[in-house]
Design a binder for these strands. Structure first.
Lengths: 226, 226
DNA sequence: ACCTGAACACCGTTCAAGT
DNA sequence: ACCTGAACACCGTTCAAGT
């Protein structure tokens, strides 16, 4: 009986949640391209077609991953603070979740409005933008750009290489630096000066701070006269 | 002799340029996912392995596409105008090329520094940002965010569906609108108000204008005190 | 230099069948 | 309800061989 439970722990029942969790773990470990139906099935000790009972196709599985991330976002309570401060707080909460899952962050880009938790976040952002004085159309576009900014911030972070161990990542960074530093100092002086920053992210907090603030300040800048 | 030339026109010699051009055309017509080694070979009346003489692997072919786009960018001449106006002009020139090739715009995101024309554009942007007072590290990060913004602007344009004919695209838009308009008016009032804007791009010039200005104003907003 | 043929190790997905 | 087996139509890529 005890042995039976131990075996069951190794090969539990297949569920949507377990598959999604397995996919996220696999993506963080070996990259999103390692997430295939066949590989997921193998890791779960099951036949590939077993997954098709739980998800109609692979795209719906990816949608499940996006939904999982979005449901992990802890929205800050609405306050009386100015709209831009609240917007920063909401986006920061979303950014925190994306940063925790850089390998699958990109999946969220096109799937926010396909899940309940995503809709709740979008509604909140739209409300703040309307408060700021934007039209419904502008608010829609700006919210989309905000999401794109956060996703890009995470998934394009310099020096990020998901699914590679430290040694090969550092070698990659070293070679990228070297190739940039080999550029002509006359023709590409600024590229040379920025070479290190392109190859790796020297200061993570500052990097994300700047990226988030870039968007917030942009929204303030394009805000119609009140 | 004349017949021979006519046949040659159908099946010319394979070159890197021809392959890249064929790939871009195919991507615009049927989407980037239709661009496979095997399909490209088929369209050129050649065996898949023939392409491997011209490109070591598929990623280098995609790199070739990105380079082609970047080499099409016509940079405006440097002037005495303020840095932000010049930056807007440079990004607008890049945006124009991306807009002409929405299906492959995303390829540029991670490949600017892999080609000469990309480096020239990056150098120019970095120079303007340094002029504005940013550090080499900040300039690197901001230039990356600028590129991300432009690429997202093009490849995530609402209602864009590359490789679908008008009928199915409009049906897609109609259904997206309908699904958003079915949301609860109490819980998602702003989503309802923005539903149309999320489903299609009502006014293209305004959309791109806002997206570009969002970035420029963002950079102005995070600019250090002078 | 430029291309072919055959083969390998993968994909997502369908469909009928098992329990 | 939940999973399997066999099959289909694809991928990218290697390697030896042809001209």
């Amino acid at each position: 009986m005890a042995r039976k439970r131990a075996e069951a722990a190794v090969k539990e029942r297949l569920t949507r949640d377990r598959i999604v969790q397995c996919a996220i773990t696999l993506a963080e470990a070996e990259g999103l391209e390692a997430v295939t139906i066949r590989r997921l099935a193998q890791d779960q000790g099951v036949t590939p077609m077993a997954l098709y009972w739980h998800f109609k196709d692979k795209d719906l599985l990816l949608e499940g991953i996006a939904e999982r991330l979005l449901s992990d976002v802890v929205l800050p309570p609405a306050t009386e603070k100015p709209w831009d401060e609240q917007l920063r707080e909401v986006l920061f909460a979303l950014l925190a979740v994306l940063r925790a899952h850089p390998a699958v962050a990109d999946l969220v880009r096109t799937r926010v409005m396909l899940s309940e938790p995503g809709l709740v976040i979008a509604e909140r952002v739209l409300g703040l933008l309307r408060t700021a004085g934007f039209t419904a159309e502008q608010a829609a576009q700006l919210s989309g750009h905000g999401l794109n900014s956060l996703v890009s911030l995470v998934s394009q972070e310099p020096g990020l290489m998901v699914g590679e161990d430290r040694a090969v990542r550092e070698e990659h960074i070293r070679r990228k630096k070297a190739s940039l530093q080999a550029l002509s100092p006359e023709r590409f002086p600024h590229m040379l000066a920025s070479a290190d920053a392109f190859a790796e992210c020297g200061n993570e907090p500052a990097y994300f701070e700047l990226g988030l603030e870039l968007f917030i300040q942009g929204v303030r800048g394009v805000r119609p006269e009140q």
